[in-house]
Design a binder for these strands. Structure first.
Length: 156
DNA sequence: GCCAACGTTGGC
DNA sequence: GCCAACGTTGGC
């Protein structure tokens, strides 16, 4: 099993939105970056991912989700009315993909980006690196466990 | 809202 | 294939 991190702007789609979705499941659509897409396509059912809130007052990791369906074509790219429409993606030759995710839980304590940046153990995590704009990224088992332990601490 | 950093586009 | 221009991301 592999671990990942998924970024989302909470004003667009928050962890709470996923929790309240039917079955706690939803599509992870709208990824329009090749590297992020390649990571989406590398995901397997049963993998787990951190849910990260970006572009908000307190950017940070807030919860955990499970990948419940491996990558398949992102249909929002085919829809001319979608903000994610991309005419270069066709049914015959899809350019963009999405996975389905399922809410597993909120962290006992959200771990803000400012705190993640303070730990040398996480220096290799793309999220904390300069100018990182990647919205889907791998997390090593060691990083995963370290972050879970951080979330269990009452005082950062 | 500012702006640095980045990815993409397209002329050449 | 280079690279300037442009649009986007996302922390602050």
């Amino acid at each position: 099993m592999n671990y990942w991190l998924l970024k989302s702007e909470p004003s667009v789609f928050s962890l709470d939105d996923l929790r309240k979705a039917p079955g706690g499941r939803d599509h992870w659509d709208g990824v329009r970056n090749y590297q992020a897409r390649n990571y989406l396509c590398a995901m397997a059912e049963g993998d787990q991912a951190f849910f990260y809130h970006s572009n908000c007052v307190r950017p940070g990791i807030v919860g955990i989700v499970e990948i419940c369906r491996a990558a398949y074509p992102d249909h929002t790219a085919f829809d001319p009315h979608s903000p994610y429409h991309d005419p270069r993606s066709t049914h015959a030759n899809p350019r963009w993909y999405m996975v389905d995710v399922r809410f597993l839980g909120a962290l006992a304590r959200p771990v803000p980006l400012s705190e993640l940046k303070q730990h040398p153990e996480l220096a290799e995590l793309p999220l904390v690196q300069r100018g990182c704009r990647l919205s889907v990224m791998p997390v090593t088992a060691a990083q995963w466990q370290f972050i879970l332990a951080l979330a269990e601490r009452n005082n950062p």
